[in-house]
Simulated scan of single mutants.
Amino acid sequence: MQIPGSYIVHFDLDSFFVAVEILLDPSLKGKPVIVGGSASRGVVSTCSYEARKYGVHSAMPMQRAMRLCPHAVVLRGNYERYSHYSKTVTEIIASKVPLYQKASIDEFYCDLTGMDRFFGVSQYTRELREYIIRETGLPISCGLSSAKFISKMATNEAKPNGFLEIPHGKEKDFLWPLGIEKINGVGKQTEQRLRKLGLHTIKDIALTPRDLLVGQLGKWGEDLWRKSQGMGSGEVEGRWDQKSMSHETTFHENQTDVGFLHKKLVALTERNAYDLRQDHKLTGCITVKIRYSDFETISRQESIAYTALDDELIGKAKAIFDKFYQKGRPVRLIGVRFSQLADDGMQMDLFNRQDDKLNLYKAVDAIKNRFGTGAVSKAATSKRLPKDKK
């Protein structure tokens, strides 16, 4: 819902993966750089503006990208490195604004509504952007307006490394001259359908009867009409560090068998990962909890590269457990918690084809959704185990 007097900021780290690579190797500056997978079957994760001049863009097959720009510098990338810088920017934003949403690894929404009574919101936004650049060395663009979608579109118009404010009451002045392809969510097929209707600009949509758009496009037609009128959500979904998901289990009998504890840890992590994917989230932090027989409870957490993949999360959970479990000491309860959640719309490790693996896990999830969560399980958890309390 769009709230009167809302001030929504959208931040977007420009060509984020490339920007981090340039930060670490300044000799790459000014060169066509592509971060992506292998030339035989990978895809472009992101590329520098110099590469974009040759027609290269994200999600393009690497083979085609190399035909368009054969002299490009191709990097496989390092997702842990990118996660580190993403979290650094997140920590800065978290310390400076009352409410924010981490929409992806390089994208944030901030709600500054009410701050206009104490600060100049425009000036505060400019200063925050400059602070992020100064502290990290990374370029970042941002847009400020009354609604999330307008702020995101303003950011896109401000790139690279710029700031654009759309004052209240000026939403249509900004939106109407723009082409329909500028609207968030309008893909090639929708664009073609709109152009066949004679609609080429957002103003064209605004002047089209709403019922006609709904008749042609259904609910999406209603959404397009509302956006063309400058009407959109101002709701920012809250801090990612306040959101988490966890599972834990209490044993009927205290346990000291490390093999058994590992199996339970795998099962808990797998359940968490399933929930994570059902909510279309990734996690950037994992916590393992142990409660001993005397009720002493210890938790340890570690930051990780953003993921929703079982094998990576299970490996990390077991590593954390092995680091601090006191061998031979009876355990009453163990638990696994994921925090620092972000939408899975963020780019995963495309250059290592982790998207293929994520799709595989989602296919398994679909089987579980249809036939029950017990329909598929890992070999490590499939053997009959002593009963425990869920």
Rank of each mutant, 00 (worst) to 15 (best):
Q2M: 06
I3C: 04
G5P: 15
I8M: 05
L13S: 07
D14I: 03
I22M: 03
L23N: 03
L23Q: 11
L24H: 05
L28R: 05
V33A: 10
V35R: 12
V44E: 13
V44T: 04
S45P: 02
T46W: 10
C47H: 06
M62A: 03
R67D: 14
R67H: 10
Y79P: 07
K87V: 07
K96C: 08
Y100H: 06
Q101G: 01
S104G: 06
D111G: 02
D116Y: 07
R117S: 06
F118I: 13
G120A: 14
Q123D: 14
R126F: 02
E130T: 03
Y131N: 12
L138H: 04
C142Q: 09
A147G: 10
K148D: 13
T155S: 11
N156E: 14
K159D: 15
N161Y: 02
G169R: 05
E171Y: 00
E171G: 02
L178S: 01
G179A: 08
I180Q: 10
G185P: 11
Q192V: 00
R195L: 04
K196R: 15
L199K: 10
H200E: 13
T201R: 12
I202A: 04
A206N: 14
V214I: 15
G215S: 08
G218H: 01
K219N: 08
G221W: 10
G234I: 04
E235D: 11
E235P: 05
M245L: 14
M245W: 02
S246Y: 00
D257T: 00
V258T: 06
V258K: 12
K264P: 03
L265P: 09
T269S: 14
L276Y: 01
K289I: 07
K289Q: 04
R291L: 02
S293M: 05
D294Y: 03
E296P: 01
I298Q: 03
I298D: 00
R300P: 04
Q301M: 05
A305I: 00
T307D: 13
T307S: 15
A308E: 14
E312N: 10
L313S: 12
G315L: 04
K316G: 05
K318S: 08
I320R: 01
D322N: 06
Y325P: 13
S339F: 00
Q340F: 00
D344M: 09
M346A: 13
D349C: 01
L350P: 03
Q354D: 06
K357I: 15
Y361S: 14
K362A: 04
A363Q: 09
A366F: 02
K368R: 15
G372F: 07
V376E: 06
K378C: 08
A379F: 00
A379E: 14
T381M: 12
L385H: 05
K387W: 02
